[in-house]
């Protein structure tokens, strides 16, 4: 999946989360619906809704996972403090999307994160589980800088449906 990359650096705070999420959502659309990538118009020519469009399962899955990782960095790595940055490199290929995220915050041991006990209706600890369940790869290397590598490939049937429409 070698591809040109989009680079974005945002402050590592929840206040700037929406900017990063919106960029990832748009990158997803280039993968899931490349035929729509004509400057923000849908295939019937109408401008997309002001919010980001997660109607495609690929987009919904990737954006959901990415948002959880962003939360994790802002809340845990940077402990809700200002001053940190989140550097993103988004690589788009015909069959998938790779987002690498680097931060300078507090590292952690991802293998020590327990699986949430879903039957007991947890009120926390679900973020990494969501990301892992929705993506093909979630790799974390403690730093500094800490590195997250998020990968999802478009399922062949979704690709056929995308190009046929």
């Amino acid at each position: 999946m070698g591809a040109p990359s989009i680079r974005l650096t945002v402050p590592g705070t929840l206040r700037h989360r929406a900017i990063a999420v919106r960029v990832v959502a748009e990158a997803c659309r280039l993968v899931s619906r490349p035929q729509d990538a004509d400057g923000g118009r849908s295939e019937n020519g109408a401008h997309l809704a002001p919010g980001y469009d997660l109607s495609h399962p690929f987009d919904a899955a990737f954006v959901s996972a990415f948002a959880e990782i962003f939360n994790n960095i802002a809340i845990h790595a940077y402990q809700r403090r200002d001053g940190g940055t989140i550097e993103m490199a988004i690589s788009i290929a015909g069959d998938g999307l790779i987002v690498e995220i680097r931060d300078q915050g507090q590292p952690f041991d991802i293998d020590a994160v327990p699986m949430p006990e879903l039957d007991s209706l947890p009120e926390g600890g679900m973020g990494i589980h969501i990301a892992r369940a929705l993506l093909d790869e979630v790799i974390y290397e403690p730093g500094p800088p800490n590195l997250w590598r998020l990968v999802k490939r478009l399922e062949p049937e979704a690709r056929q449906a995308s190009t046929a429409s």
Partner: peptide, 10 residues
């Protein structure tokens, strides 16, 4: 509701 994350679920 269009979008939820784990904090919303919680």
């Amino acid at each position: 509701l269009d979008i939820i994350d784990s904090s919303g679920v919680a």
